[in-house]
């Protein structure tokens, strides 16, 4: 759909016509390992070169996620992180960085918080939008309307299994960007690059001029660049969450910043 205002997300993910695409979106789970760490991790990820941050709201039953993000979600729930506590701190976290932030959540926490209350509160934090992973376009009209009213972007998922009819509906409800799932399955790192991506990019492009981001399964700078040769942005989730699990305890936020910079620039080998 045509938005009447210029979305900060759209602006952040647009690549200049003269240069090759190099936009990177990074996911992390809020409250992993604790809410105290999340602000510092977001700042480190932004310094490392992320163009947009997807901040995951931990959920008890993350059925779209693979083992790495499941573990992060469990750690975060154990540490007491939940939607209300995240929204309370999000304004501070967002203010400290120069890139847009969207929340990545399952629907039930938002539903219990209240749709209108959610969009109002989220808008007040300065964050730019949300992606609700188990909210299908069919069920999303009330959500999309309240989000639009609060001038927040609504990002929806497109899958290689989506029919053209579904892609048209997804494109119509999306604002900011469209998130293309690289392969059927759950989140998680994969060695090979899915052949489903090029045709999916082409199909979604028929229905929208919004920036297109591709995620699920990306974990190396090579895969990131492969995506950037096809779409506007690459999304890395599980690989960064695993770095938070493995490196953050010993290397601190500098280790995460190095890891994101490696993904973004591809210079050198994976930082040790």
């Amino acid at each position: 759909m045509t938005t009447t205002f210029t979305s900060a997300i759209e602006a952040a993910l647009r690549n200049p016509a003269s240069a090759r695409a190099n936009k990177l979106i990074v996911y992390l789970t809020a409250g992993d390992p604790t809410l105290h760490d999340t602000g510092e991790l977001m700042a480190a990820i932004a310094r490392g070169g992320a163009d947009l941050i997807e901040l995951g709201v931990p959920f008890s039953d993350p059925m779209a996620d693979g083992p790495v993000i499941q573990r992060a979600s469990e750690r975060a729930v154990r540490s007491g992180a939940a939607l209300a506590a995240i929204i309370e701190r999000l304004a501070d976290w967002r203010r400290a960085i120069g890139v847009p932030v969207i929340l990545f959540s399952y629907y039930n926490p938002i539903l219990q918080y209240g749709l209108e209350r959610f969009s109002r509160a989220l808008s007040q934090t300065g964050a730019e939008g949300a992606l609700v992973v188990d909210l299908s376009p069919e069920e999303a009209e009330p959500y999309a309307a309240t989000m639009r009213a609060a001038r927040l972007d609504t990002v929806f998922l497109a899958s290689p299994t989506s029919t053209d009819e579904r892609l048209a509906r997804i494109a119509r409800l999306s604002a900011g960007f469209v998130y293309l799932i690289s392969r059927p399955g759950v989140t998680g790192e994969k060695a090979d690059f899915s052949s489903a991506v090029p045709p999916l990019v082409k199909r979604v492009r028929q229905f929208t001029d919004l920036p297109l981001a591709v995620g699920f399964g990306l974990s190396t700078p090579e895969q990131v660049r492969q995506v950037q040769s096809l779409a506007d942005a690459a999304v890395v989730g599980s690989a960064v969450v695993r770095a938070i699990e493995d490196r953050y305890p010993t290397e601190g936020k500098a280790g995460i910043e190095r890891f994101v910079r490696w993904l973004k620039t591809g210079v050198g080998s994976e930082p040790q």
Partner: peptide, 10 residues
């Protein structure tokens, strides 16, 4: 209703 990730909709 039908609250599933897009990959399961088809």
């Amino acid at each position: 209703g039908r609250y599933v990730p897009e990959t399961l909709m088809h």
